[in-house]
Every structure is written in C-alpha cells, then in structure tokens.
Simulated assay, not measured.
Amino acid sequence: MKIIIADDHAVVRSGFMHILNFQSDMEVVATAADGLEAYALVTKYRPDVLLLDLSMPPGESGLIATGKINEDFPETKILILTMHDDEEYLFHVLKNGASGYVLKNAPDGELLAAIRTVHAGDTYIHPAMTTSLVREFVKKGTEVVEDDPFKILTKREIEVLPLAAKGFGNKEIAEKLYISVKTVEAHKARIMEKLQLKSRPELVEYALRKKLLNF
C-alpha cells in the first residue's frame, strides 16, 4: 500500500518512514510538514493511507486537512496521529472523515495494525478509547447544536479562531493562512457574532473551553 506521512517534526516523519518501509506490504511515497503540503501530495500520489498529525503549527492543522482530503479524495484512508488521548479530538476527527486514531506513543505493532485496519476499510480506535467515543456520541446527540463550534463555524473560521485567541494580529493571521487582512477581519467579526462574544478575553476563554487552541 502507498502511504504518506504528515507531521511537523522531521524526526517523527523519519522514524515512522523507517518502520513502515521495513514492512513488505507498505511503502512511504512522500512526507509532509503540514496539512496544505499533505493535500498537495495526496493530489499527486493518491495514497492508500495518509498518516496525519492532528496539530502541526504554524501550518494547516490535521483536523482541517482531514475534512478537505476526505471530501476530495475519499479513497484515501486517513489515520490520525496525535498525542491527545481526548474524546473531543477523537469525535471531531472521525466526524471530519478520518478512518482511525492512534497515539504517537503507541507501540510499533499497534501503529502497523491500525494502518492495515483502515486500509482494509475498517475503523481503528484504541480499545481504551472506545467507551469514551460511545459516551461522546451520546452526549453530542443531546447537546444543543449552537454549542458546538464545529457545526456553526466554517472551516476557515475554525482556523482563524485559535490564532486570534493566541494573540496573533490580523496581518500575522493573514500571512499564515494566505488570505488578505480584510478577509481575516471579516472572519473574526463573524466568529464573534456567531458565538455571541464581546471581547478577546471571552474568545480566549471560549477557545480554551472548547479545546480549540491545538488546532
């Protein structure tokens, strides 16, 4: 199977590449440092599996890239790599189209099993997190839709929000996301309006509560 690895740490990419290329049924055809590069490489190589880091600052996050790649290249199975063993992350990456979720500190054997599982068309979730996932789906089914930022904000607004909460200026956000300053200002205004926030401290508090700062 053809595999692409996307992670912002070169040593992680190198380590995973060594492990996977040692397998008789796997070949790493390319590596990427963020979501934008991952998308470009998926477009070029059309891999069977994409190993995608969830958080890749300052580039495009794995969560945003997952939605885009799943929409345009549904035949590529996305396996999320992350240090976050939190059901909030798990719920949203699966909702955005990921086929699995494995922790970076998992044993090599678990990583290989996860890759083969998603390649076969199944979903891989660490057994210890299955109960959390079920609980989260039940909870989400009873929550008010307006309380979920992933349902009321656009993908671009989800990218702008954590950068604004971290204190980046409009020009810095524009440079990071390759958009104009006026577009950033418009996104920020819509975010504040949609979330009914009045100030940046309220925005920071909201981002912390919704665990958006890692995106």
Rank of each mutant, 00 (worst) to 15 (best):
L212Y: 05
R209N: 07
V102F: 02
I80S: 04
S61M: 10
V138R: 06
E71S: 12
A113S: 11
D25I: 11
E37A: 13
N70S: 14
D53Q: 02
M192Q: 06
L133V: 11
D147A: 14
D86M: 09
I64S: 07
F91Y: 15
E71Y: 12
M83G: 03
T117H: 04
P57M: 09
F150I: 09
K44M: 12
P47F: 05
K95F: 13
F215V: 12
A164Q: 04
L63A: 08
G167K: 03
G109T: 09
H84Q: 05
D122A: 15
R190C: 00
A106W: 14
T82D: 05
L63P: 03
I152Y: 13
A165S: 07
L36V: 15
R135W: 13
E172V: 10
E159F: 13
N70R: 10
H92G: 04
L81W: 00
L161K: 04
M1L: 08
R156W: 13
R135N: 14
L161Y: 06
P57W: 10
D7H: 07
F91K: 01
E202N: 02
I5V: 11
S99Q: 08
I173Y: 07
K44Y: 10
I78C: 04
V102P: 00
S14D: 12
H18M: 14
S61A: 10
V11G: 00
T43H: 05
A114I: 04
T123R: 01
I4D: 09
P162D: 11
G67Y: 12
K44L: 15
I78D: 00
T130L: 15
I191L: 09
S24C: 07
K151D: 14
V42S: 03
Q196V: 13
A32I: 12
G67H: 11
E159Q: 13
V12T: 12
M192W: 14
R116Q: 04
E136N: 05
V160W: 15
T142V: 15
V28L: 07
R190M: 05
T123H: 02
E27I: 11
N214D: 06
L195V: 10
I179Q: 02
L195D: 06
F73H: 13
E157N: 01
L177Q: 05
T82K: 05
S55M: 14
L81C: 08
E88H: 08
L103F: 12
E87V: 14
G167E: 09
E75M: 11
K95I: 07
V49Q: 00
A33S: 15
I179F: 10
I115M: 03
P47N: 01
G35H: 04
K44D: 11
L20A: 08
Y124D: 00
V11P: 01
R200K: 10
K44P: 02
D53R: 01
V42T: 09
L63Y: 12
K194P: 05
P47T: 05
F22K: 05
I158C: 04
Y89E: 07
A38Q: 04
L161H: 02
E37Y: 13
E110H: 06
M129G: 00
S99P: 01
E157T: 06
L208Q: 06
K188L: 15
D85F: 03
V29Q: 01
H187P: 02
V134G: 00
N96K: 14
R135H: 12
G109Q: 11
Y206E: 00
T142W: 13
V144W: 11
